[in-house]
Design a protein around this nucleic acid. Structure first.
Lengths: 211, 211
DNA sequence: ATTTCGTATATTGTATACAAAATACTTAAT
DNA sequence: ATTAAGTATTTTGTATACAATATACGAAAT
């Protein structure tokens, strides 16, 4: 076998998936012993994964009393959203022009996004893929990695919003307007619209959470 | 005793200090066993600290062959700097107006910065404190934490630059212009100047590194 | 019945043990 | 003398063990 992955990385992914699937609900205490048993590995790599997740804001770590899944909180969502928005805008501003081929893919994703209804997982996945595709040309690798990581937080909020508020998706109209600006090679305008897209999305989620 | 700190956090701080002091030079392999011996604790909390440092871009972690101190690389510095710049600008834009009392402190730091010569550690410390003080009023706690963390990277570059290039400090004139804008309660202008300050600093460091 | 205290249990944080893999070392062949 | 193969030694990644602390449970007192 060529690609060996440390157990801690596999554990990280698995735990993250469980949080996203709702298998580990907000507020739940996460016991390393129990996870170690379930995954059939020892506590050591589990704890390494938990420590990382707590640094990333998915879990809370109270000293001496272990980990728990962070509760959903509108101000936390607004804070993360503001950061992610600024970073995506920066990434887009400093990207090379988006080639037509990639613009086509973005439109494809949007079409699929409009077609898919009521499948929350698919919708969130496509929304994230759209953003990733948009920023694929950003030469700042560290920035791209950071953005990918930060996405884990809003993802949880979008998912619960789509599911519980019964909304089908966040408006894809904004996407279209961003693509339009990129077609004109006007990255500045596109970045502005991306910021606007985020603002609206954050506001939509925030006001729903604060209902 | 009231405030207990996990060993992993103490280890994290100690290792970080060693990297900054140059005790652990760029490229050095970092062996958990050796550190555990030196700090008189076991490998477990050491490895937790190393894992965290590698996520933060201070150490490199090659699977199966352990950790090493990241080599200084101008493009990495530019990438981190661009991110940090954007985040500090965001923080300043979304801050409350900086009260006169705090503006005074900023000026004090600048005066000290101008007075201190040839003490690299003190200079870097003051520069970082200046930025922290500037952003103290940012209500986005997550953003402030992220900025504090990210600072660990440029810190290494500034330190080596001041020491080896023989420069005394990065220009404090920019600081003064930022403060001036804040006196007029013009946060937007201040944010612009902060961005400019970063741009110039990054360019100065970058061109020196690429010499 | 409710509360308070004490004890048992579980869970954490840290230390140690072990197996696999990587590095360093030795020796033999050219 | 240099290289190469094979062996010994480190070093890593993971598992387990242990001590300290926190939680859960139950009995006694009000």
């Amino acid at each position: 076998m060529i690609g060996r992955k440390p157990l801690r990385d596999q554990a990280y992914q698995e735990i993250l998936d469980r949080v996203h699937r709702g298998d580990l609900a907000p507020g739940t205490r996460v016991r390393d012993t129990s996870l170690a048993g379930q995954l059939g590995i020892s506590r050591t790599p589990i704890r390494e994964a938990l420590l990382r997740l707590s640094r990333e804001g998915i879990l809370a770590a109270d000293i001496g009393r272990g980990f728990s899944v962070c509760r959903l909180d509108s101000s936390e969502m607004r804070e993360s959203g503001a950061i992610l928005s600024a970073l995506e805008v920066l990434a887009l501003q400093t990207s090379a022009d988006v080639p037509p081929e990639r613009l086509g893919r973005l439109s494809d994703i949007d079409r699929e996004l409009a077609a898919v209804r009521s499948d929350v997982d698919r919708t969130v996945g496509l929304e994230e893929e759209w953003h990733q595709t948009l920023l694929l040309g950003c030469p700042n690798r560290r920035l791209r990695d950071m953005i990918d990581n930060l996405w884990q937080v809003p993802r949880r909020y979008i998912r619960v919003y789509l599911r519980e508020a019964g909304r089908v998706s966040l408006s894809t109209q904004h996407h279209a307007r961003i693509i339009e600006a990129l077609r004109r090679k006007d990255r500045l305008a596109a970045a502005d619209r991306l910021a606007h897209h985020w603002e609206r999305g954050i506001e939509e989620l925030g006001s729903w959470l604060e209902r």
